[in-house]
Design a protein around this nucleic acid. Sequence first.
DNA 1: CAGAGCACCTGTGGGC
DNA 2: TGCCCACAGGTGCTCT
Length: 273
Amino acid sequence: MPELPEVETVVGVVRPLLVGRHITAFQARWPKVTAPEAPSAFARKVEGKTIERVTRRGKYILLGLDQGTIHIHLRMTGRLMVVAPGQNLDSKHLSARFDLAEGGCLVFRDMRKFGRIGYLDDLAPLEARMGPEPLAPDLTAERFHAMLGARRRQLKPLLLDQGFLAGLGNIYVDEALFAARLHPEARASGLTIAQAGVLLDAIRDILRQSIDHKGTTIINFQYAENSPGQYRERLQVFGRAGQPCPACGDAIVKSRVAQRGTHWCPQCQATDK
DNA sequence: CAGAGCACCTGTGGGC
DNA sequence: TGCCCACAGGTGCTCT
């Protein structure tokens, strides 16, 4: 479900509700939610600690504690919400729950149960397998071009690779490649500096706009109770197979690239492979 | 290194 | 109407 804009939206909603609060207990309803660690071992590390910061890195939600950090990945269908004291707790699809001092709790729901929660004393191991943030100012077109130039992979799977660039998923990769008029199977190393700059600008523009619209809701994503993200209406190609391309009017095609459904315009994105 | 295939799960939508 | 299959916003593993 969630890519960078959706995670950013969730972080913005829960941050003011969580900063300064104490975790009194952790309960896993789905034991694998803390895998590879056992829920009891995870609970011992976080119970009694205070949440000082709530941030995002790639698609991870990070709860910075007075000691160590909780990392939460929503994967496909995870949802994170703060339940107020006395508010009734719907147990459907409940994966885990953090009880908070003064009542209320942080609830993790996950229909497909792919989502994961973990604890790290030091974020270095997580940082080591993550690429740069697409919105970071120090990611220049020159640096991005150099990163692309070092790889022979197809653009689509490369942009989905969190170790290359952190935060993009299937929706925004398709949208960015369309905006930059690049073929999803084009080789990364073949891009010119100008093309790399256009692609980076497209990625940033799309991510910023989606964040402004509270992300994209296809089925599950809600940033708060019953509030869907509004970026869906602005999607140019994703989920629009058979409809006219907004740029040229030819039909948008859905094909399979790197085992993922891929939406693109063969006319506009005719870059050499 | 690059890519395919599969595993992890549950729900839904489209085709027949 | 009902059934079945394919597919879904993600990632990690093995194997070629």
